[in-house]
Amino acid sequence: RELRDAFREFDTNGDGRISVGELRAALKALLGERLSQREVDEILQDVDLNGDGLVDFEEFVRMMS
């Protein structure tokens, strides 16, 4: 339940997936600093298991585990 709530916080447009822009904004909020595009792309590449360029809830749960 906590992970579902956190996912909703990251998924600002409510489409059920976290985009690169949403991921960048969430990481900035969490870390208090802006990451480079390359750093965000590397994180997305590690987390995006199905290669669609987005983070779905299952991928998010794995990222947070």
Results as ranks from 00 to 15, higher is better:
1 R>F: 12
1 R>E: 15
1 R>G: 05
1 R>W: 08
2 E>H: 09
2 E>G: 07
2 E>Y: 04
3 L>M: 12
3 L>N: 03
4 R>S: 04
4 R>A: 04
4 R>N: 10
6 A>M: 14
6 A>T: 15
7 F>D: 00
7 F>P: 00
7 F>H: 00
7 F>G: 00
8 R>G: 05
8 R>T: 13
8 R>Q: 08
8 R>V: 06
9 E>F: 04
9 E>W: 03
9 E>C: 04
10 F>N: 06
10 F>G: 03
11 D>G: 02
11 D>R: 00
12 T>F: 02
12 T>C: 07
12 T>S: 10
12 T>P: 01
13 N>I: 00
13 N>E: 02
13 N>M: 00
14 G>L: 05
16 G>Q: 05
16 G>S: 05
16 G>T: 01
16 G>A: 03
17 R>H: 11
17 R>N: 07
17 R>G: 13
17 R>V: 07
18 I>G: 00
18 I>N: 00
19 S>N: 13
19 S>L: 02
19 S>T: 15
20 V>I: 03
20 V>E: 14
21 G>F: 14
21 G>A: 12
21 G>Q: 12
21 G>I: 07
21 G>N: 09
22 E>N: 01
23 L>T: 11
23 L>V: 08
25 A>K: 02
27 L>W: 07
27 L>R: 06
27 L>V: 14
28 K>D: 14
28 K>G: 09
28 K>L: 09
29 A>R: 13
29 A>C: 04
29 A>N: 03
31 L>R: 10
31 L>V: 10
32 G>Y: 04
32 G>T: 02
32 G>I: 03
33 E>L: 06
33 E>D: 14
33 E>F: 08
33 E>A: 12
33 E>Y: 08
33 E>V: 07
34 R>I: 14
35 L>G: 14
35 L>I: 14
35 L>H: 13
35 L>K: 15
36 S>H: 01
36 S>V: 14
36 S>N: 06
37 Q>T: 12
37 Q>A: 12
37 Q>W: 10
37 Q>C: 02
37 Q>D: 03
38 R>G: 12
38 R>Y: 08
40 V>Y: 08
40 V>W: 13
40 V>Q: 13
41 D>Y: 13
41 D>T: 08
41 D>C: 09
41 D>A: 07
42 E>R: 09
42 E>D: 06
42 E>N: 00
42 E>Y: 04
43 I>S: 14
43 I>G: 15
43 I>P: 10
43 I>H: 15
44 L>D: 09
44 L>S: 03
45 Q>I: 11
45 Q>L: 12
46 D>V: 03
46 D>T: 13
48 D>A: 14
48 D>W: 08
48 D>N: 15
50 N>R: 11
50 N>L: 05
50 N>H: 06
51 G>C: 09
52 D>N: 11
52 D>S: 07
52 D>C: 08
53 G>R: 03
54 L>V: 05
54 L>W: 03
54 L>T: 12
55 V>W: 06
55 V>G: 00
55 V>S: 03
56 D>I: 08
56 D>R: 09
56 D>Q: 07
56 D>G: 10
56 D>L: 06
58 E>N: 04
58 E>I: 00
59 E>I: 10
59 E>M: 13
59 E>D: 03
60 F>Y: 08
61 V>K: 10
61 V>C: 11
61 V>H: 12
61 V>G: 11
62 R>C: 08
62 R>P: 03
62 R>S: 09
63 M>Q: 10
63 M>H: 13
63 M>E: 01
64 M>E: 15
64 M>Y: 15
64 M>Q: 10
